[in-house]
């Protein structure tokens, strides 16, 4: 039985080429999933992301974005701490925005009725902001300096340890705010 090398190598070559393309695609997909906002990145333009709710003026201020949801127990625990931060630093150039990831607005409204807060809350109904920022868990806090650059990301809420960390970050960033 005589076969020319071409008869075997052609399908093998095609198979290898197709496999290589497929594997390359599969390898790059998780990289795309993992990408999110990194320290040094600019704060997205919140007004262009169809958020439900009023976005306060952020220019030249320390911005704290907190991603939360009504179904997330640690988020609920973090709310009194966030409210306290807003009351303490709100007049000193610090803006806190709670970004609700609730699919249904009534869930968010019910939660806010039970846990009233004075800081701004918006709902990312179309998941546009979350898709850009890609918080790794609920809750996650993002702190931006007055220049609008991401300074630090703080996922999870672990009580007093988290509160101390938040205070440390906010006080450090507030020192860079121009009067």
């Amino acid at each position: 039985m005589n076969m020319s090398p071409l008869e075997i190598s052609l399908p093998r070559r095609q198979f290898l080429r197709t496999s290589a393309v497929g594997m390359a695609l599969m390898a790059t997909t998780p990289l795309g999933w993992a990408a999110g906002l990194q320290p040094g990145d600019t704060l997205p333009d919140l007004k262009s992301l169809q958020l439900e709710g009023t976005v306060p003026d952020l220019s030249g201020k320390v911005v704290h974005l907190d991603f939360w949801a009504s179904w997330c127990v640690p988020c609920r625990q973090s709310f009194p701490v966030l409210e306290n931060l807003h009351k303490t630093y709100g007049s000193k150039g610090y803006v806190l925005i709670g970004v609700s990831m609730d699919e249904r607005q009534p869930d968010m409204d019910r939660f806010l009725k039970k846990n009233p807060v004075s800081f701004a809350t918006v709902r990312d109904a179309h998941e546009k902001l979350a898709s850009k920022v890609r918080p790794p868990g609920m809750p996650t806090s993002y702190f931006f300096g007055p220049e609008g650059r991401l300074d630090s990301v703080h996922p999870k809420y672990e009580g007093e340890a988290t509160r101390k960390k938040y205070v440390e970050i906010i006080e450090r960033l507030l020192k860079t705010v121009k009067a």
């Binding site: 179904w71 990831m101 699919e103 979350a130």
Partner: peptide, 9 residues
């Protein structure tokens, strides 16, 4: 995604 886990929670 972490923000889509309402049902799982």
């Amino acid at each position: 995604e972490p923000w889509q886990r309402r049902t799982l929670s």
